[in-house]
């Protein structure tokens, strides 16, 4: 039975790999602060879609890899993604049925949370950071969320991830 239930794991892994690569693609200087946190978005989607498979633990591991990828303090992204995964799991039944633009608002709030934790960690380290720019990824991810959602939903249907 479990074989039938748990299929399409490759699609999940692949989507996260693509998200990681998008995080590393060089952007011009002005666009860099606006880069949406692709890994966070993918994590939110999979937490909504298959909450019994993707959750807090996977979020934490992804966060650690993201820390290594972006060269931040080991644990900064891990903490953020853990909380994002937890909250998404908590409310996944409610958020899942909302219209897309309404989901965007939830995504905005989740990314703001993620960024606040990053800002807080930087603050504790004593590193001065640019003020309002920290939250610009939240805006871009809210705008891009409908497309992310549709693309990942198609991926999920194609590979019958359940």
């Amino acid at each position: 039975m479990s074989l039938v239930r748990h299929q399409g794991g490759k699609a999940i892994v692949l989507s996260f790999l693509v998200a990681f690569m998008l995080m590393a693609v060089p952007l011009p200087e002005w666009a860099d602060p606006w880069r949406p946190p692709w890994v966070t978005l993918a994590l939110i989607y999979w937490c909504l879609a298959v909450p019994d498979r993707v959750g807090v633990g996977i979020g934490w591991v992804l966060g650690l890899f993201l820390d290594v990828l972006t060269g931040t303090l080991l644990g900064q992204h891990a903490l953020g993604l853990t909380l994002v995964a937890f909250i998404t799991l908590r409310f996944h039944k409610r958020v899942r049925v909302l219209p897309l633009w309404h989901q965007s608002v939830s995504v905005l709030l989740l990314v703001v949370l993620d960024r606040s934790i990053a800002l807080w960690v930087k603050g504790i380290q004593g590193l001065a950071t640019a003020d309002g720019v920290v939250f610009s990824p939240a805006l871009t991810s809210a705008i891009l969320w409908p497309w992310v959602f549709i693309v990942l939903r198609d991926v999920r249907r194609k590979y019958r991830v359940a």
């Binding site: 959750g55 934490w60 650690l64 303090l73 644990g75 891990a78 853990t82």
Partner: peptide, 24 residues
């Protein structure tokens, strides 16, 4: 429960990574 473990682990990692270099 898992949340608690992960959050504590993150905070621990950050502290160790910031203060010492064991996690290199």
């Amino acid at each position: 429960m898992r949340l608690l473990v992960c959050v504590l682990a993150s905070v621990l990692f950050m502290t160790v990574d910031h203060r010492r270099h064991h996690l290199e």
